[in-house]
Amino acid sequence: MFENFTQRQITTSEAVINLRHAGDGPPVLLLHGHPQTHVMWHRVAPRLAQTYTVVCADLRGYGDSSKPPTTPDHEPYSKRAMARDQVEVMRTLGFERFAVVGHDRGGRCAYRMALDHPDQIAALSVLDILPTAEHFRRADMSFAMGYWHWFFLAQPYDLPERLISGDPDAFYLRRGKHMFDEAALAEYRRCFTDPATIHAMCEDYRAGAGIDMRLDESDQKAGRRIACPVQALWGLKGPIDRWYDVCEVWRGWANDVEGRGIDCGHYLAEEAPEETLAALEPFLAKAFERISL
């Protein structure tokens, strides 16, 4: 995996971010979901690197990135804090403006980055998510049953940590592991069996149910919208397709929105890499045609 990619750790003002990068061309940052690492892009990143400079980074708290101490309001694990890390990473690599593609929790960091740092984000693609506030505001019994882990992981320290640590595989791989490459799965296991990572991932969800939700609500009240082109992709076999008009929800947050469902479950880049690339490549090409980096 990741042949011809360079692995590097970059120290930002708040964290140390682990990443791999390769390619030459307009910059594209790829951000992973829970409970994965940047390795989730192994079927997509090499192809994108034929056209773009591709950066695959571990979010703070995940993989081999650092796990900063938390605070009572969980701000160090807010998507705003994660976004600050990634903007600094890209600047260190020489990129003041770039496209970002985020899956799951990485998508939440990505859209927060687009809201907080509009001058840096040229295009945004979000995979299998809606804005955090939209999920919580629209929550009903179906959502609570399907997304019960949101409420479990957000419980106060250290109940979730202790229960997960008893059998991390049973919790993190409950959706099944058949869609994951064996080498990728080994990497995920190496990381999600680390107690520090388990705690950091719980902090991510505690932040989601608190400060992230409040930031989303504040932006909506202020009329702040995502300025760059937005692409929403989602799995047709997952609950998002059944519960929401995905593009219509994102149009409440951005003026330029396109997207479609892909015939797979939640893990688009690993379950359906060719279909995911077939959607991503024209979107990125069109976005970079509009701007001069």
Rank of each mutant, 00 (worst) to 15 (best):
Glu270Val: 12
Leu185Arg: 07
Gly166Cys: 11
Gly238Met: 01
Cys191Pro: 06
Ile262Phe: 00
Cys264Lys: 00
Gly265Asp: 01
Gly223Ala: 05
Ile262Trp: 00
Ala57Tyr: 05
Gly61Tyr: 07
Gly235Tyr: 00
Glu248Gln: 15
Ala200Leu: 10
Ala184Thr: 15
Ala184Arg: 08
Leu284Asn: 07
Trp253Val: 09
Gly252Tyr: 04
Ala133Asn: 04
His199Lys: 14
Phe2Leu: 12
Tyr244Val: 11
Lys221Asn: 12
Arg242His: 13
Cys228Lys: 00
Thr92Gln: 13
Phe151Trp: 14
Trp41Glu: 08
Cys202Met: 14
Glu203Trp: 10
Asn18Glu: 10
Phe283Pro: 08
Met201Leu: 09
Val101Leu: 01
His149Asn: 08
Arg290Ala: 13
Val55Trp: 05
Val230Arg: 04
Pro46His: 02
Ala184Met: 15
Glu271His: 01
Pro239His: 04
Asp194Trp: 11
Leu284Tyr: 03
Leu29Ile: 03
Ala184Ser: 12
Thr37Glu: 05
Ala207Trp: 09
Leu153Gln: 11
Leu127Gln: 02
Val230Asp: 02
Leu19His: 03
Arg190Pro: 06
Ala15Asp: 08
Tyr77Met: 06
Ala200Gln: 07
Val101Glu: 03
Phe171Tyr: 15
Val246Ile: 14
Arg112Leu: 02
Ala183Gln: 12
Tyr267Ser: 06
Gly259Lys: 02
Trp234Gly: 06
Thr53Phe: 13
Glu281Cys: 08
Arg162Asn: 11
Arg91Met: 05
Glu275Thr: 10
Glu88Asn: 11
Leu31Gln: 08
Ala57Trp: 06
Ala232Pro: 06
Val230Cys: 07
Lys177Phe: 11
Pro76Phe: 09
Arg60Lys: 10
Thr37Gln: 09
Met90Cys: 04
Phe95Val: 02
Arg224Asp: 08
Tyr77Ser: 03
Pro239Leu: 12
Pro282Glu: 02
Ala22Gly: 07
Lys221Leu: 12
Arg225Cys: 04
Arg91Gly: 12
Gly61Ser: 11
Tyr205Asn: 05
Ala287Cys: 02
Val28Arg: 09
Pro168Glu: 12
Phe98Val: 02
Val55Phe: 09
His32Ser: 05
Met40Asn: 10
Phe5Gln: 03
Ala285Cys: 03
Cys202Ser: 10
Tyr157Trp: 11
Thr51Asn: 12
Val44Cys: 08
Ala114Trp: 01
Ala254Gly: 11
Pro35Asp: 03
Ile10Val: 14
Gln50Phe: 05
Asp181Leu: 02
Ile240Cys: 05
Lys221Ile: 12
Asn18Ala: 11
Ala232Ser: 13
Ser218Ala: 15
Ala232Asn: 11
Pro239Asp: 08
Val16Leu: 09
Ile17Phe: 03
Pro72Ile: 09
Thr6Ile: 13
Val126Thr: 09
Ile129Arg: 00
Tyr157Ala: 15
Pro69Arg: 13
Ile17Asp: 04
Asn255Gln: 12
Leu185Lys: 12
Ala154Val: 08
His21Phe: 15
His34Ser: 07
Asp263Phe: 00
Thr197Lys: 08
Thr92Ile: 02
Arg20Val: 15
Lys177Arg: 14
Leu268Ala: 05
Ala227Lys: 14
Asp169Asn: 14
Leu268Val: 06
Ala170Leu: 13
Thr53Ser: 15
Thr132Phe: 07
Ala254Ile: 08
Ala196Met: 05
Leu93Arg: 02
Asp194Thr: 03
Thr51Gly: 03
Ala184Trp: 11
Leu284Trp: 04
Met90His: 08
Glu289Phe: 00
Ala110Asn: 01
Ala287Tyr: 00
Ala227Val: 10
Lys221Trp: 03
Ser13His: 03
Thr132Lys: 01
Arg105Gly: 01
